[in-house]
Design a protein around this nucleic acid. Structure first.
Lengths: 199, 199
DNA sequence: AATTTTGTGGCAGTAACTGCCACAAGTACC
DNA sequence: GGTACTTGTGGCAGTTACTGCCACAAAATT
């Protein structure tokens, strides 16, 4: 890695850090791109080359956590689907646990702010599609998109519920334990399933 | 209903229609608020009073479909949870089937467009929370947020998968049939569930 | 008919984002 | 080590979504 790449990585991280600092301090809306750029000592135009939108600054941590874990799944030796799923979920949670403060910050920022929450939803949406692709390859019938989509959706649901519980615990709980408990609910059929029928 | 409300309802609908027309014709990004306002023969400032953001114009149809169905659930006599869930899902699909062209248009617009897709995700997000609240009330243990959230998430997943399949069929399939098939998969345990274990 | 309420729309302003261009810092070649 | 090429930086002007404010008009109320 040359000096150039190194400097850019540092700048990127600096911008991101300063942004979170300002967001948590003054609020997302009240913080302008110019302020962030000034705090990171770069021009606004440069900032936009690193982060194409303001929302990206908040969301990118989640995005990379998710897609890094997926990359991991792709590179690993094939495993039975349920085990592979468990492993991806664990991986995502592990990556997030790398920087718990930022996870909490993301929630704090996105909670009161619609556009950021929306972007988060989009990231999850795209990740689900990508995961569904991986799942489909591992199904008996790879063209069964419905099963693949539902399976991927379940994985996302687990991650969301776990992270949410973890955030509600103030970051004190253990994500892996929460995940195990949640998945146990699923396996034991404790989740009500819609059923046709008369009242 | 006085003349005032009537006129406003008409104006609202007119703006929405013209917007969809322009979006599908010229694309979402290429269409400006001023153009929509001009087409609907109102001032841009007025348009903003009806639809606070550009995305709202696309998303509102989905939002009302979802929340109308939820309102329905609230007003109906209590039913066993699985039956109630099935009924909500059916209701949502029914309301959407009211205007199939618009469902297809929403997908067409939101597909290539990140910000609209994101807003759609946010609507689903908020609806899931609301539905989870209803579910919780009907659980043996109303404080079991994890089960409530997962249950609500499942309902959303079904709706999403069904609508998606329906859109992929070009709008020819029957949503209720698709929904029944999808829920059957769930009931029969055909969906792989993440499981801890060694490869 | 007079008054109060409420929707309309214009104007000015903010802030996110983009294309373009000059410049400088890093890299590669001799 | 100096020169030429590549690539990140940042300033400037411009577009567009969106907001607050205010004057006006249409509708509801008395």
């Amino acid at each position: 890695m040359g000096i150039r790449e190194l400097k850019m990585a540092r700048t990127r991280r600096l911008i991101s850090d300063k942004a979170f600092e300002l967001f948590t301090c003054n609020g997302y809306q009240r913080t302008t791109i110019e302020q962030i750029a000034a705090a990171a000592e770069v021009g606004p135009r440069t900032l936009y080359r690193y982060f194409p939108t303001k929302e990206t600054l908040v969301v990118e941590f989640v995005r990379t956590s998710l897609f890094d874990a997926l990359e991991d799944l792709r590179s690993q030796p094939p495993a039975p689907l349920p085990v592979a799923l468990n492993s991806v979920i664990g991986k995502v949670l592990d990556v997030m646990a790398t920087d718990p403060a930022r996870v909490l910050a993301v929630y704090e920022i996105s909670g009161p702010n619609g556009s950021v929450r929306a972007q988060l939803g989009d990231v999850l949406w795209m990740w689900r599609d990508a995961l569904a692709g991986e799942v489909a390859q591992r199904l008996d019938d790879p063209s069964d998109h419905v099963t693949a989509q539902l399976t991927a959706a379940f994985a996302i649901n687990i991650i969301e519920v776990v992270v949410r519980s973890w955030v509600n615990s103030g970051g004190t709980a253990d994500m892996r334990t929460l995940a195990d408990e949640t998945m146990a609910l699923l396996r034991d059929g404790k989740i009500p399933v819609p059923t046709p029928g008369q009242a």
